[in-house]
Amino acid sequence: MTRSSRKARVLRTAPGLYVWVLSWALVEVAASADLKPAPASQEKAQSFGRRFVGLDKCNVCVGTSMCQKLYKGDIRFSPRLSSHAELPPANQRSYLGNLTDDSGTWRPVVLSRLLSPMAQRLYDRHICTSAGHEPSCSVENVLRATPRFQVWTKSHLLLPPMVKCLSAPLLRCPSQRLLDRVVQRYTEVRDVGTVQMKHFSEKDKLRLLYTLAANQHSLVLQMFPGPEGWPFPRYHGSCGRVVVWAGTRPLSSLYSSPLERRADAAYQLLHIAQSLASNSLQFQLYYTSVSAEMFGYAEDCRVFVVDTSTIGVIDLLAAHARDLLPATRSVHPRASPSCVKMSSLSCSPPVTCDLLTCPAMWPGTCLSAQTLASLTAPFSMQHVL
């Protein structure tokens, strides 16, 4: 029997089946065609994703080290949102998500902007208007034309005069060794590990300058990484103006936990303060302000400082360090009338680190007794009775 005769026999014996199979195939083809978004919708989704993470504002951004994972779908905002075309509301500052690696396992992460969306818009407008431009000007063009950035482009080292008047607590008394560590641990460039910026392009320098000016949090996570024993979450990278670090749970969620677990968290808070004050690198880290929202804990119950935007750093090997140290090295000295809040440091008249007294420089230390009392109030026996 020939092939054509067999086909004719099938049509005669089962015409209904043939029509059903043909109809089913056509339906599947049509459905698959509907599932593929039109080029216009794909372009719209990609454009929305760029605006969502702030890539459209680069190079006035943090970096692009995590963009590939974000757009590959290796980072998901929730189990239901598996692609960058499905994004959560853009009016939030931070989001919980999950990150996968080559092993196929998923780890909790936090995706956060350095500033809230409203604060970021005001920040950009201020840069434009302060330079005499329209509020919607190109922030990158304005920053590139500033005298500060012109100095940055010509220097192979990050020098103390180059960060003068930047408001980050990290930079209140910058030593050369501290700034060298900023550059040496800056992972948003390819060649990491050198204190020189010869391999930095102009866009790299602009991104570093923006990060120092906007929010120091991502830089502290890189300078003092959690995997090396520092009480900070692991830094994964950034995409545009969104930073990704290891996920934690808020410390407040422990308030209803058993007493033993809460007591352990309180002990870890005290130990963190001690480790920040005394370490082998001879950098003394201190709180300029303290709140419960600054802390979180991981699945293994380890407590971390999850917001480092208010942490100051003193280089103990610098010449001016002896003038900044308190009379006692106690981690939690009793609060005294001499403990006062630090006044804002303006650039006019100039203020040098040598003129800063201990009470003015160490509000986090002076006020730590009251602050930790408020943090550990939920850990008291009175709370559980």
Rank of each mutant, 00 (worst) to 15 (best):
T2C: 11
S5P: 04
R9K: 14
P15Q: 05
V19W: 15
V19F: 11
W24Q: 14
L26F: 08
A31C: 08
A31W: 14
A40C: 05
Q42K: 12
E43V: 11
K44C: 05
S47T: 15
F48V: 13
F48A: 15
R51A: 11
L55F: 00
N59E: 11
M66W: 03
M66V: 07
C67P: 03
C67I: 00
Q68Y: 11
K69A: 05
L70G: 09
Y71S: 11
K72M: 11
G73I: 02
G73P: 01
R76W: 07
S78F: 02
R80Y: 08
P88T: 10
Y95T: 06
V109W: 06
R113V: 09
S116D: 08
M118N: 13
R121C: 04
D124M: 08
C128F: 04
S130G: 07
S136A: 13
R144V: 04
A145M: 09
K154L: 00
S155I: 05
L166W: 12
R172T: 10
S175L: 00
D180M: 03
V183N: 00
Y186H: 02
E188P: 06
V189E: 01
R190I: 15
V192Q: 14
H199T: 01
D204M: 00
D204R: 02
Q222H: 01
Q222G: 01
H236P: 07
C239F: 13
V243G: 04
S253I: 13
L254Q: 13
P258W: 03
R262A: 03
D264I: 04
H271G: 07
A273F: 12
L276D: 10
A277Y: 05
N279A: 04
Q284N: 12
S289E: 15
S289F: 08
M294S: 13
F295I: 03
G296P: 03
R302N: 15
S309Y: 03
D315A: 06
L317S: 12
L317M: 12
A318L: 05
A319I: 12
A321S: 03
D323C: 06
L324D: 03
A327M: 14
R329V: 08
H332F: 00
R334Q: 06
A335V: 00
P337A: 10
S338M: 13
C339F: 05
K341R: 13
S346M: 10
S348E: 12
C353D: 03
L356S: 13
A360H: 14
M361H: 14
W362E: 01
T376D: 00
P378K: 08
S380A: 10
M381V: 13
Q382R: 15
